[in-house]
C-alpha cells in the first residue's frame, strides 16, 4: 500500500471518529448542565479545557458561554477540530483515496459532510442541537459499519481501525476528564446523588451506561474510571482501543504478538501492557486527571512514531494544474 494512501485512510478515520467524539463532548456537557441544581451556573469553559484547545478558543471568543463553546466545537470552520472541519478534512482524505475505499464508503463520507454543512448553514438551535448531535454519531456509526462490511479487512482496513481507535482512546480519556473540570458546587457534594447523576451522564455520553451496569451494577466513581480505562471488551474503553490498535499494527507489519519490529509496535505495546497490568490504584494515587494527562502524552508519542514508521513526510502540492484538460 502506498504510504500516502495509508496515511489518508488513517486520517480519514481519525477525523470521522473525532467528529463523533466532539458530538459526545457537547452532549456530556449538555446532560451535565441540565441536571445542575438550581442556582448554579452552567459551566462551559471546562469543556474547552478538556479538548486541549483552550488557548485557541480564548483568542477567538474570549468568553466561554454555551453558544460560543458549541460554535467553537461544532460549526467553527476556523477550528481545525470542529465537527464541520473534521468532516471537510475526512472528505478530502477520502477523495484522495477514492480508488482504495469502496464506493459505499465514499458516498457515506460525502453525504455525511453535506448533511453537516447543511445543518451548519441552517444554524444550530437549542431545539435542533440534540438531533444534530445524534445524527453525527449515527453517521459515524454508519460509516464504521459500511467500512466493516464493504472493505477487505487487509492492510487498508487495519490502518483505518488504527486511526479510529487511537483517536477514540484519546477522546474517551478526555470525556472522562470533563468530570474533573466540572466543579461540584462544594467538596461536600462528592458521592452525593448529584455526583452520581454526573457520573452516569458521563457514561451515557460514551454510550457506556448499559454495559457499565452489566459489569458493576451501581454507579461508583472509581468503577466508572475503571470501566472506561481498563475494560478489555467495551469498544469505547481505552484498553480495548489499545488492544485492537496493537492487533492492527501487528497485522500490518506481520510481526508476532509480544515482539516488535518497529518503534510504533514497541511504544504501543508498552502502553497497552501498562493498562493490562494496571488497576484503579494507578490513578487514585496521583489523581485521575494527572493519570489521563500522562496517558494522552504517551498516546501522542505513539501517533508520532506511527507517522515516522509508515507515512513518510510528503508535501501536498497545490500548484498550477499541469494535466491536460482536453
Amino acid at each position: 500500500m502506498l504510504s500516502r494512501v495509508a496515511s489518508s485512510i488513517f486520517w480519514l478515520n481519525r477525523y470521522i471518529e473525532r467528529a463523533e467524539n466532539y458530538a459526545r463532548f457537547i452532549e456530556v456537557n449538555l446532560n451535565l448542565s441540565l441536571d445542575l441544581p438550581r442556582g448554579t451556573t452552567e459551566q462551559w469553559e471546562p469543556l474547552v479545557a478538556t479538548t486541549g484547545d483552550h488557548e485557541a478558543f480564548l483568542a477567538r471568543y474570549g468568553k466561554a458561554t454555551k453558544e460560543t463553546v458549541i460554535q467553537f466545537l461544532a460549526t467553527d470552520a476556523a477550528n481545525p477540530s470542529s465537527i464541520l472541519s473534521c468532516l471537510a478534512a475526512a472528505r478530502e482524505n477520502a477523495r484522495s483515496v477514492r480508488e482504495v475505499i469502496s464506493t459505499d464508503m465514499w458516498e457515506q463520507v460525502n453525504r455525511f459532510h453535506l448533511q453537516v454543512r447543511e445543518a451548519v448553514s441552517r444554524g444550530l438551535s437549542t431545539q435542533n442541537l440534540h438531533v444534530f448531535l445524534t445524527d453525527v454519531k449515527a453517521n459515524s456509526h454508519l460509516f464504521l459499519g459500511i467500512t466493516d462490511a464493504t472493505m477487505s479487512h487487509g492492510e487498508g482496513w487495519h490502518f483505518a481501525r488504527l486511526g479510529r481507535l487511537l483517536e477514540r482512546a484519546d477522546k474517551t480519556s478526555r470525556i472522562l476528564d470533563v468530570k474533573y473540570f466540572m466543579l461540584l458546587p462544594t467538596v461536600a457534594e462528592v458521592g452525593t446523588p448529584f455526583d452520581i447523576i454526573q457520573w452516569s451522564a458521563l457514561l451515557k455520553s460514551a454510550s457506556a451506561l448499559e454495559m457499565y451496569y452489566k459489569r458493576f451494577g451501581r454507579i461508583a466513581p472509581d468503577d466508572v474510571s475503571t470501566f472506561l480505562i481498563l475494560d478489555a471488551t467495551f469498544p469505547r474503553a481505552i484498553r480495548y482501543c489499545l488492544i485492537k490498535s496493537e492487533n492492527s499494527l501487528h497485522a500490518i507489519s506481520g510481526s508476532e504478538h509480544g515482539s516488535y519490529r518497529n518503534q510504533a509496535e514497541k511504544q504501543l505495546g508498552r502502553l497497552r501492557a501498562q493498562l493490562d497490568f494496571g488497576d484503579h490504584e494507578d490513578y487514585v494515587a496521583d489523581g485521575l486527571h494527572e493519570f489521563l494527562d500522562r496517558f494522552q502524552g504517551k498516546l501522542n508519542g505513539v501517533g508520532e512514531v506511527i507517522f515516522e514508521t509508515f507515512f513518510a513526510p510528503r508535501p501536498i502540492h497545490n500548484t498550477i494544474p499541469a494535466s491536460e484538460s482536453q
Partner: peptide
C-alpha cells in the same frame, strides 16, 4: 495511474478509473 493530485480538475475521473 499517475495523477497530478486532487487539486486537478479531472481528479474525480483519475480516482474513479483507478478504482
Amino acid at each position: 495511474m499517475l495523477t497530478p493530485g486532487m487539486f486537478n480538475s479531472a481528479y474525480y475521473e483519475h480516482s474513479l478509473l483507478a478504482q
